[in-house]
Simulated assay, not measured.
Amino acid sequence: MIDRELIEKYQPYLYNLALRLVYYREDALDLTNDVWIKIIENIHTFEKKSEFKTWAYRIMINLFLNQKRKYTQLHFEKFANTMNELENSNLSNEYDEPFKQLLIEEAKIGCMMGMLLCLNPEQRAILIIGDIFEINSDISSEIFTISKENFRKKLSRARSDLYNFMNNQCSLINKQNSCKCEQKTKALIEKGYINPKNMQFTETYVDTIKKRKKTKSNALDLTMEKLYKNLYQNHPFYEDDMKIFATNLLKNKEIKKIFEL
């Protein structure tokens, strides 16, 4: 049986997965809402052979991949060209120093999230599950309904594509690269990618993915790969008001109909 407590417990994990899959908060909330409808419709099929979170993740991944054309897809070459064409300049003194740092962090997280959108949808989902959330290959293969060996191969390809791009483009990885967060933030604001009055990623959060993840994959051998992974794992873990979400979800007309059956 689905109740408010269950929704409030697992919604943060589903929302944080959704946000990294689709980038925009509104799309992430819509995706999690659709996932909960699927969960409620199919809860009778949950056999408890795996954790509820694993089962819910599998529903979200399947739904996302089936609806992938709804969501933004970027490409590495065009993404690099866009960033390289932005003027390098420092933020003006109209912002005080603490707020400047917040804006730079917004630019950094937004840019890194944009890089995820350059992976094809399956690669993106596999890298988020396997590297950023560090869910081990036994559970990850169950989420994607593929063999452990196939999951590891797909993860390796996704990791290589993203990490090679970052190594050639991002100064967080290679300091020789010219694309630096603090020098691109002003241009990102001017182009409308960042709204100082309505920030997408740094407005409110209480934790990081690194502190929240509970399962670990096999340790990575290469120090450089650990650096890429740590950058993403230090991104915020968002805690929306789950009580409001649960209340609105349980008022949903589709869900009311399911409960009435």
Rank of each mutant, 00 (worst) to 15 (best):
T54D: 09
W55E: 01
W55A: 01
W55Y: 15
A56K: 03
A56F: 05
Y57M: 00
Y57S: 00
Y57N: 01
R58P: 00
R58M: 04
I59R: 03
I59P: 00
M60I: 01
M60S: 00
I61H: 02
N62K: 12
N62F: 00
F64W: 09
F64V: 09
L65T: 07
N66P: 03
N66V: 05
Q67I: 03
Q67A: 11
Q67W: 12
K68I: 02
K68Q: 14
K68V: 13
K68C: 07
K68A: 13
K70A: 11
K70P: 03
Y71G: 06
Y71I: 09
T72Q: 13
T72W: 06
T72V: 14
Q73N: 08
Q73A: 08
Q73Y: 01
L74D: 03
L74Q: 04
H75K: 06
H75V: 04
E77F: 15
E77P: 02
F79I: 03
F79S: 04
A80L: 12
T82E: 12
T82I: 11
N84S: 11
N84I: 07
E85C: 12
E85I: 06
L86D: 01
L86Y: 04
N88H: 12
S89Q: 11
N90T: 14
N90K: 13
N90L: 15
S92F: 14
S92T: 15
E94R: 11
Y95R: 06
Y95M: 05
D96E: 09
D96C: 04
E97K: 10
P98K: 08
P98S: 02
P98D: 03
F99K: 08
K100R: 11
K100Y: 01
K100I: 02
Q101T: 09
Q101A: 07
Q101K: 11
L102E: 06
L103M: 08
I104W: 00
I104K: 09
E105N: 12
E105C: 06
E106P: 04
A107K: 07
I109R: 01
I109Y: 08
G110Q: 06
C111K: 04
C111D: 01
M113L: 11
M113G: 06
L116Y: 05
L117Q: 13
C118S: 08
C118E: 02
L119F: 11
N120T: 12
N120V: 11
N120S: 13
N120I: 10
P121G: 10
E122H: 10
R124D: 13
L127Y: 15
I128F: 10
I129L: 03
I129T: 12
G130E: 01
G130S: 14
G130Y: 10
D131M: 06
F133N: 05
F133S: 06
I135Q: 04
I135E: 02
N136G: 13
N136A: 05
N136D: 14
N136M: 05
N136Y: 14
S137R: 10
S137I: 06
S137T: 09
D138A: 11
